[in-house]
Design a protein around this nucleic acid. Structure first.
Lengths: 189, 189
DNA sequence: AATAAAAAGTGAGATATGTCACGCTAATTA
DNA sequence: TAATTAGCGTGACATATCTCACTTTTTATT
């Protein structure tokens, strides 16, 4: 739980008592590599704070083709936000790339938490804004860049992530075929 | 200001007194078609609530090529969020497609507003979450669809917007050349 | 250690989309 | 009303990227 406290305190300051109250809303769960945290068509009860590990959030095209919307690792929050907040069935899948430990927060508890400790709502707003800006930058990258440029931008923005994922996953995130990605660094320009 | 009140009340309930306080933080401004609301490299003091009109938020590539990140019309909030919240220079441009009336809210006033009426912070969080989900859907569309499919999805999601923008602007939003877009509905598959 | 499975590289050909050039029409402006 | 500009369609060709097929290398599993 300590990583959660450090993470929150980057944004807002909290007392020991407050953190005890916050902490009480979260349930830790551990998932093994390749296990699903969220499956499409199922209910999404929780948002997940990732303590250790790495996951991919993806959309399945024709139940076959995997399109990665985002990776999430230590200190990231992830879920199918649409399904979570709108209390509907998942359209996305969340699956572990590595063994992963998360803290789960149900929607009810999320609301209680924000009521009990109002500055937590401020915290989540900050997170949401950052997410919005990151998504916007991704959209700009997709609008303006070819395969090679998108690859180079990824390396620059997420150097540590790059070490932990296969080229196949990266290709799926960038929206290019793995063959094209493979050729980028062997036939440079 | 009435459109603002209705817009807020879709999310939270407020009294007359509360709305008077809220209203006091906003400054109305009118822009003519083709005028800039935000120019890149300039400070971004405000977030804009659009009362009437239509604007485009775009990134300029090599100071030449316009890539549209989003359109915003009645009842939408728009700004260069990164520049606004991080108090940095704009990297994006916001320009009127039609004559546009906005309500401006400075960052200081935004913070005062959230402190004065805490449920407004809840309101902005809801807006931010919706924006995040919309961006994510756009990313999925870009990852999974070809030009024609993206075009059809746009028609479905924003039928009213479609009436108000040129093909050139739409092409720039979809990330295809205007020639390719033009050919989509004349040479149907 | 042996075997199977997944990841990664690569050639050849297909294809969607981009680019450039031009003409026509509609809209804006002087 | 004339003149200029912006929007739109379309042909021809260029090209980035995809797809398929196969091989090699690395990683996981029994």
């Amino acid at each position: 739980m300590n990583s959660l406290r450090k993470h929150i305190e980057k944004e807002i300051s909290i007392t020991d008592d407050e953190f005890s109250m916050i902490e009480a809303f979260f349930r830790p769960i551990a998932f093994k590599k390749n296990n699903f945290i969220i499956k499409e068509n199922e209910k999404v009860d929780d948002v997940f704070f990732i303590q250790t590990g790495l996951v991919k959030l993806f959309y399945l095209d024709n139940n076959v083709d995997e399109h990665i919307i985002s990776f999430a690792m230590e200190d990231w929050w992830e879920t199918d936000f649409n399904a979570y907040f709108r209390e509907s069935k998942a359209t996305l899948n969340l699956k572990c790339i590595e063994d992963t430990e998360v803290l789960c927060l149900s929607l009810k508890d999320y609301r209680k938490l924000c009521n009990t400790i109002p500055k937590m709502e401020h915290f989540f707003l900050e997170k949401s804004i950052s997410g919005h800006i990151a998504n916007q930058n991704r959209i700009i990258s997709m609008l303006t860049s070819n395969a090679k440029e998108k690859y180079e931008q990824f390396l620059k923005i997420y150097p540590s992530l790059h070490q932990r994922i296969s080229k196949k996953l990266l290709a799926s995130y960038l929206g290019v075929s793995r063959e094209t990605l493979s050729r980028l660094y062997y036939k440079p320009k």
